[in-house]
Design a binder for these strands. Structure first.
Lengths: 204, 204
DNA sequence: TATAGCCCTATCCCTAAGCATAGGATATTG
DNA sequence: CAATATCCTATGCTTAGGGATAGGGCTATA
C-alpha cells in the first residue's frame, strides 16, 4: 500500500482530508503540521511515495521549503496543496520541482484521481493554471540579502531601520529594494510586499 | 434536525468538512462557495440554525460580510471559520456580532462540540484567543472612503494615482492615508497594507 | 438648532523613497 | 585565469510620502 504524507497546519482540514483519502482504501496516510515536522516524519519513516505540502504552513516557503522536502524524500514526488492559489505561484512551484499543484478548490473525487496520477509518476496541474501560461514569466530568483530586505519591508520598516538591523548603509538597502522590486515586477515597496505575501516568499 | 450552512470557497475543504459534520448524524448541512451564494441560499431556504462563514472567501470582508449574513439569517448564530486566524481578528469578529470564531487548527471532534454549543445559543472561542485580550484594543472602524484609499494602497498605487481614480486631490488621499494608518496602528502605507490583508479589510 | 462624523481642500514643511551611475570587494566556478 | 554573481558603498538628484494646522461643506441625528 502506497505511503502518503500530508503536511498542513490546519488540524481540521488535514484530518478530515486524511480520513477522506484513507477511505479510498488504497493508501496509508501519515500527517504533519509544519515543515519541520514533515521533514522529521520523512527522516523517521523513510521516504514517502507522495508528500502533499500545504503552501501556507509554518516554515513553508517557495522554493526553499519545497526543495528541502524533495531532498529529504529522495526526490519522490512532492506536490503543493494550497487554498490561495495563483497561476503564477503554481508555475513557480512546478518550476521548482513540484510534481503537482492542487488548489483546495478541486473536488474531492478529483483529488483522489490526482493522487493516483501523482503516485504513478505523473504531473498534475489543473487546466486553468496552465492556460494562462504567458511566455517569459520567470520565477524570480531573489538573493538571500534581497529576502532579508523584503522581510523588513513586509514589517513596514523604513530603509534606514532595515539598514541598521542588517548593519549596512541605507543606500545598500535602497539598491536591494530597487532590484527586488524589479524582479517581482512591483511598482514600489508596498506592491512588493503584497506580491511577496501572495507568493509566500517570506516567513517571519 | 438542525440546519447548518457551510460557506467556503475551497471545495475540497468544504465538502470533506460537510461530510464529517453530517456523519455525526445530528445535522443537515448545506453548502455555499462564496458570500453571494451564501446569502442566496439563506434567502431561498430560509434562515439556518447556524452558518459557518469562511474568512477568506470571495466577497467576504470583516465586518461587512458578516453583518450582511447576520441580517439575512435573522440574527441566528453565524460563526467565522478561518485558517489564518489572529487573536486580533477573532476579537474583531466577535465584536461585530459573530457567535464564534473557529480556527481551522482545531481538532475535528472539538468542532462538533463547538457546533453543538453554538446551536444552543452559546459563544465559542478557543482559550488562546481570549487570553491575549489586552485591553483597549478596539476594532478599528474605517470609513468607506478610507477603505477606497486602502484598496489603492494595497495595489501599490501612488497617492496621485489613487487621487485620480477617486477624482479628488492628492492632499485628500494623504489625509486618508494618515488617518487610516493611525486607526490600524500602522507605521506607514506598506505596514497598513499588510495589516489590512491580515484583517481581511479589503476585497478586490 | 446644535453636535458630530465624514469628506474635501489648502499651505508649508521635512523626510523617505526611488533612480541613475560608477566603482570596489568577495566568492564561486567553468 | 576569466567570467559571474553577490554584496557593499558613494554621489547626486527628483519625486513621493507623511505630518501639522486650519478651514468649509454636507448629512444625519439628538
Amino acid at each position: 500500500m502506497k505511503k502518503i504524507l500530508i503536511a498542513d497546519d490546519h488540524d481540521l482540514v488535514r484530518e478530515t482530508l486524511a480520513d477522506y483519502i484513507r477511505n479510498a482504501g488504497e493508501f496509508s496516510v501519515d500527517q504533519a503540521s509544519s515543515l519541520d515536522e514533515c521533514l522529521d516524519q520523512i527522516h523517521q519513516n523513510g521516504a514517502y511515495d507522495l508528500v502533499l505540502l500545504d503552501f501556507t504552513m509554518p516554515g513553508m516557503t517557495l522554493p526553499d521549503g519545497l526543495l528541502h522536502t524533495l531532498e529529504a524524500n529522495s526526490n519522490h514526488p512532492v506536490a503543493i496543496i494550497s487554498g490561495t492559489a495563483s497561476p503564477e505561484t503554481a508555475r513557480r512551484a512546478l518550476a521548482s520541482g513540484a510534481a503537482g499543484f492542487l488548489p483546495k478548490t478541486i473536488a474531492p473525487e478529483t483529488l483522489i484521481s490526482a493522487v493516483r496520477h501523482l503516485l504513478s509518476g505523473g504531473i498534475y496541474t489543473p487546466q486553468q493554471f496552465l492556460e494562462s501560461e504567458k511566455g517569459g514569466d520567470h520565477a524570480p530568483h531573489l538573493t538571500p540579502r534581497e529576502l532579508d530586505v523584503l522581510r523588513g519591508i513586509c514589517e513596514g520598516k523604513a530603509n534606514k531601520e532595515i539598514a541598521r538591523d542588517l548593519e549596512v548603509q541605507e543606500v545598500t538597502i535602497k539598491l536591494h529594494v530597487k532590484t527586488l522590486s524589479r524582479k517581482l515586477q512591483a511598482r514600489n515597496r508596498t506592491h512588493a510586499a503584497m506580491i511577496a505575501r501572495d507568493m509566500n516568499l517570506i516567513w517571519p
